[in-house]
Amino acid sequence: MKRQDAATVDARRIDPDAEPIVRMEKLNKHFGRLHVLKDIDLTVAPGEVVVIIGASGSGKSTMIRCINGLEEFQAGHLDVDGKVLEPYGKASRALQQIRTEVGMVFQQFNLFPHLSVLDNVTLAPMKVRHASRKHARQTAERLLKRVGIADQSSKYPAQLSGGQQQRVALARALAMEPRLMLFDEPTSALDPEMIGEVLDAMRELARDGMTMVIVTHEMNFAREVADRVIYIHQGEIVEQGTPDEVFDSPQNERTQSFLARVLTY
């Protein structure tokens, strides 16, 4: 990690007294008989970068997918940016509003294959925010440049590499000017040589003060950008703290054994 990065990360201002963007209280979710999330308590402050780690099947993806209503929960409280999400996935005005203000990047990119790169990025601003084509286009070009994909805007997703596709997906989400970004294993489907470019784009976003909740297996990245690391085991938050606390002196033995398995560097 570059010294300078650490300095900028530290300079980001997280106001602990500010109204949290995400507030989960005693959130419970079942898939049939499987209890996937057990009494999850989580608050995310504006500007905070939270990284969630844990084994596959531990419920970490499910947890962030609850935040924008892609998964329903059965019990507990969840509000996002002050808007309350009802249990059982009831479609509501609040859910719609939350989705316009929360961006998401998926493991499989999920770009729209029938639309050009530019149209992928301008679709939601034009249809949801009723931006003019010209304005949406300018925003898209600025964002594509920012994630390092200038001059490819007329291409189709299939013509891009995985790393490029994921960066377009990031630009697409940012075009809605979200207050919170969710990342669901954004580098897990990428070839190793393309992981770096996606992490770089995310790192820059964190540096600019975006509030982020990230599910990832990239432990070095987590240590570098996270304000807080959360370890989930079988649907429960077992441990959380600063990266130094969780990675260097984990208190819980399940965290210890998980880290012993994944921290191979």
Binding site: N68, G69, L70, A91, Q96, R99, T100, E101, V102, G103, M104, F106, Q108, N110, L111, F112, L123, A124, K127, V128, A169, R172, A173, M176
Partner: peptide
Amino acid sequence: IERGQREAGLSLGLSRVQTFRYV
């Protein structure tokens, strides 16, 4: 059509009808 397409549309704030129509 893969489920992820619908999820991507919804996560961008498109309504269910818009997601169907445009995605």
